[in-house]
C-alpha cells in the first residue's frame, strides 16, 4: 500500500518542511505518514498557508518513512557532496 508524507518549503528561508502532527517540522522523523487521499488533502490544506509554506507536494515513502526516490532523499538529507569548506576542514 502506498504511503506518503507531505513536504514543502518554508517561505521565509526556503528550508525543507514536513507535515507533522502539530503543523510543520524540519525533521523528517516528525513527518506524518498518510494514505494518498489524506496526503492530497494535506497538500490542499497547505495552500491555505501561503505566507508560511510554498510548493507543498506528496512524496512516496517506505516503511521507515523515508522517501523512495533518490531526489527526495537528497532533499531530506541535504547535498550528498560536502561543500569545499567542509573538505578543507576534514
Amino acid at each position: 500500500m502506498t504511503q506518503q508524507i507531505v513536504t514543502a518549503s518554508r517561505l521565509a528561508d526556503g528550508r525543507v518542511l514536513f507535515r507533522a502532527p502539530e503543523g510543520w517540522s524540519t525533521d523528517i522523523h516528525d513527518a506524518l505518514v498518510f494514505t494518498p487521499e489524506e496526503a492530497a488533502a494535506a497538500v490542499t490544506r497547505a495552500q491555505g498557508e501561503p505566507t508560511r509554506v510554498v510548493g507543498a507536494y506528496a512524496v512516496d515513502v517506505d516503511d521507515a518513512g523515508l522517501p523512495l526516490l533518490g531526489r527526495e532523499r537528497i532533499r531530506v538529507f541535504g547535498p550528498t557532496v560536502a561543500p569545499y569548506a567542509a573538505q578543507l576542514e576534514a
Binding site: 528561508d13 526556503g14 501561503p50 510548493g55 531526489r71 541535504g78
Partner: peptide, 24 residues
C-alpha cells in the same frame, strides 16, 4: 501575503532568486 507565490516567482527570478531543493 499581498503577493501570491505565482505573482512573486517571476519577480524574484528577475532578481536571481530561486527556490531550490534545500533553500533559496
Amino acid at each position: 501575503g499581498a503577493l501570491t507565490e505565482d505573482q512573486f516567482r517571476p519577480l524574484r527570478l528577475m532578481n536571481g532568486l530561486y527556490l531550490e531543493m534545500h533553500a533559496y
